[in-house]
Design a protein around this nucleic acid. Structure first.
Ligand code: MN
Ligand code: MN
Ligand code: ZN
Ligand code: ZN
Lengths: 141, 141
DNA sequence: GGCTTAATGCAACATTGTTGCATTAACGGA
DNA sequence: TCCGTTAATGCAACAATGTTGCATTAAGCC
């Protein structure tokens, strides 16, 4: 699995252990194309016959967010797997208000423009996070 | 009170009643310069001797968010009073990771650039929401 | 395979959020 | 200014979500 390889890289690089629960939570995030809650993940995994305590799932998601392997998307609620390189400090999402489809993207130019805007107000930007709500190509007309 | 006048305008315009609880929640939001939870608001109001049921506060915040009188800011957690015109579809925040200071802003050019980016991916944008994390002018050494 | 210790499981708890229905008060009209 | 209508609030009971401390397990290293 390609997903898992990336996980292993990041965890090892940061000195964390590559555990079964962590692999399973990542798989669940990858499988779910939309934001899911910790309890959603627990249910998903139960379907496949594997049980994880909810506390464990919370802790794993905390770690994933710390490592930018996942994000909590506020517009919709719930967590999503980060589909872009970790540690970028730029995490952006388009969410379709109709069907709920979510797509992550990044944009360097946007970051720079935002940095300038912030600078003008005396603010030094470190992390960029944005969410667009609208309609995906399928849901238009 | 200037705040309250705006509230009255918006509520009446949309056919909602101007109630004591709604006025009190807005005052609390205005008073708190940082994001506050529904229960935070309840505590704040208790200090001043007025009790509101938490269910009421939730419903009022739901309404305020619907009318863009308030926002839920995910980076920090909790609600803030919208300091800009409602109904813009563009709500952006800078949050200082050090002191928690939060400042709302809007930027038309940013919206247009974002619209284009989304367009290129087949997505039609309706609402722009973004959060920067960094350091405010005070907290930069 | 055994040791060390990070990670997980578990229990108990705390906080946050929701629903249905009775009661209250906003507000337009008499 | 009072009254009737009905939106909004309060209340109770519940559901979902999130947290902490400690016992147990298993990942990684030799
Ligand atoms: Mn990301
Ligand atoms: Mn706003
Ligand atoms: Zn869609
Ligand atoms: Zn600051």
């Amino acid at each position: 699995m390609l997903e898992i390889q990336g996980l292993i890289q990041v965890l090892k690089a940061e000195g964390y252990r590559v555990t079964q629960p962590r692999k399973r939570v990542l798989e669940a995030l990858a499988l779910a194309q939309r934001p899911v809650s910790p309890y959603d993940i627990q249910k998903m995994l139960l379907q496949e016959g594997s049980y994880l305590n909810h506390v464990t799932i919370y802790r794993i998601l905390d770690l994933f967010c710390l490592l930018n392997l996942a994000h909590r998307v506020s517009l919709v609620g719930g967590f999503v797997k980060c589909t872009l390189g970790a540690k970028e400090g730029c995490h952006r999402f388009m969410v379709c208000r109709q069907c709920g489809v979510l797509r992550e993207f990044a944009d360097k130019a946007l970051c720079e423009e935002e940095n300038e805007i912030a600078q003008d107000l005396g603010f030094h930007t470190e992390r960029h996070f944005s969410e667009f709500s609208g309609l995906c190509s399928n849901c238009q007309v």
